[in-house]
């Protein structure tokens, strides 16, 4: 994992140098995107959540997502229990760009889901920030973040891919696919006395190497109608 991060960091830095010329423009672009997102003070969204983590068997469930500026976020599932990777709060794009305190590096252009995007790297200046690096793929014309890869100190690397629809004017996606590595996850043990055979070792390894995925499909948003703070408790 550490090795992986080092390589990632190296790539990021070298990439950064190549495109240093346009860093200034990119900062402006990120700020524009941020401004667009900032127009949303709060929202409540209804959607469906699909969890695909190899060692979790979870049903597809209806969820309600609550957001309030600057970084309050809550996901509620019908039936009451939601399983998300730690740091899953950053499913919300708003929280990724909550501060202005970052350096922006331009890393070229790339196609994401058939759309040409600007690839930018955000490096938080704060030493204490959990986020080490965020790479964003921004649809410049519509000011939408199509994809983001975030590397954190505590919770590994996450990839977020977003698809937009009728709420694109607010910068809110219809679908968010959240991918993360489950390699370092500890598998649960049975509470007591599970007599069934231990899972085969190779099988366990296979499970471990797989990536985890959480997919959120929103059906509707209620934007800027106010959200009570008690929801986030």
């Amino acid at each position: 994992m550490k090795q992986f991060l080092k390589i990632l960091l190296f790539l990021t830095i070298t990439g950064g140098f190549q495109v240093k010329a346009s860093a200034q423009d990119m900062t402006a672009l990120v700020l524009k995107v941020k401004a667009k997102l900032d127009a949303v003070n709060d929202y409540v969204a209804d959607g469906k959540m699909k969890t695909d983590i190899t060692f979790i068997k979870a049903p597809v469930g209806n969820v309600k997502v609550y957001y309030k500026k600057p970084n309050k976020f809550k996901l509620k599932r019908d039936g009451g229990i939601s399983i998300l990777p730690k740091g899953g709060i950053s499913i919300n794009m708003g929280s990724i760009v909550t501060t202005n305190d970052f350096d922006v590096l331009y890393a070229g252009e790339e196609m994401v889901a058939g759309v040409k995007t600007k690839k930018v790297k955000l490096l938080p200046r704060s030493e204490t920030s959990d986020v080490v690096l965020t790479t964003m793929y921004i649809d410049e014309a519509n000011l939408l973040i199509k994809k983001a890869i975030t590397t954190t100190k505590e919770n590994g690397t996450y990839e977020i891919e977003m698809t937009y629809g009728k709420y694109s004017s607010y910068g809110l996606p219809d679908k968010v696919v959240f991918t993360f590595n489950t390699k370092d996850y500890k598998m649960p043990k049975g509470i007591t006395m599970d007599f069934e055979d231990e899972p085969k070792k190779t099988e366990a390894e296979k499970l471990k190497n797989k990536k985890g995925r959480v997919e959120l499909t929103y059906s509707s948003y209620t934007i800027n109608k106010g959200v009570d703070d008690s929801v986030f408790k």
Partner: peptide
């Protein structure tokens, strides 16, 4: 409510 059961090697969530 939903039920969570840790089993040997995985977690099961039941609606």
């Amino acid at each position: 409510g939903d039920m969570i059961i840790p089993r040997n090697g995985y977690l099961v969530q039941l609606k």
